[in-house]
Simulated assay, not measured.
Amino acid sequence: MKFKKIIIRFLSLILLMVTALSNTGYMAHAQEVNINSTNGDVVIFAEETEWRFRVVDGQIQKRLWSLTWGKWLTEWEWV
């Protein structure tokens, strides 16, 4: 009986750890909101991005950078 309780606790702990670790990749980001104080209008700004370029072995590659969030949005692509 004691062995059964230990097994159940161990499996519960494993399940809890797997659940906690699997949800770390999903993050929600709120968009930037600007409220105009004169008339109360809400203005939502779009995400700002720019293409970054580099030369590897004489060929050009590009990658999309998010200015809003400060992170890469794509992998390096051959142009």
Results as ranks from 00 to 15, higher is better:
residue 6 I to H: 09
residue 7 I to Y: 06
residue 9 R to S: 14
residue 9 R to F: 14
residue 10 F to E: 04
residue 11 L to H: 05
residue 11 L to M: 09
residue 14 I to W: 05
residue 15 L to F: 15
residue 16 L to T: 15
residue 17 M to C: 13
residue 19 T to C: 09
residue 19 T to S: 11
residue 21 L to V: 04
residue 21 L to D: 09
residue 22 S to E: 13
residue 22 S to I: 14
residue 23 N to Q: 15
residue 24 T to R: 15
residue 25 G to R: 10
residue 26 Y to K: 14
residue 28 A to D: 07
residue 29 H to K: 13
residue 32 E to M: 07
residue 34 N to W: 04
residue 34 N to F: 10
residue 35 I to W: 07
residue 38 T to L: 09
residue 38 T to I: 09
residue 38 T to G: 02
residue 39 N to I: 07
residue 41 D to C: 04
residue 42 V to Q: 12
residue 42 V to G: 02
residue 42 V to D: 03
residue 43 V to D: 05
residue 43 V to W: 09
residue 44 I to A: 02
residue 46 A to V: 04
residue 46 A to E: 08
residue 46 A to Q: 08
residue 47 E to S: 09
residue 48 E to L: 02
residue 49 T to G: 01
residue 50 E to S: 04
residue 51 W to Q: 02
residue 52 R to T: 03
residue 53 F to M: 11
residue 55 V to Y: 00
residue 57 D to Y: 07
residue 58 G to E: 04
residue 59 Q to S: 06
residue 61 Q to F: 01
residue 62 K to Q: 06
residue 62 K to E: 00
residue 63 R to V: 08
residue 64 L to S: 08
residue 65 W to S: 06
residue 66 S to G: 03
residue 66 S to E: 03
residue 68 T to L: 04
residue 68 T to Q: 05
residue 69 W to S: 13
residue 69 W to R: 15
residue 70 G to P: 10
residue 70 G to I: 00
residue 76 W to E: 06
residue 76 W to F: 03
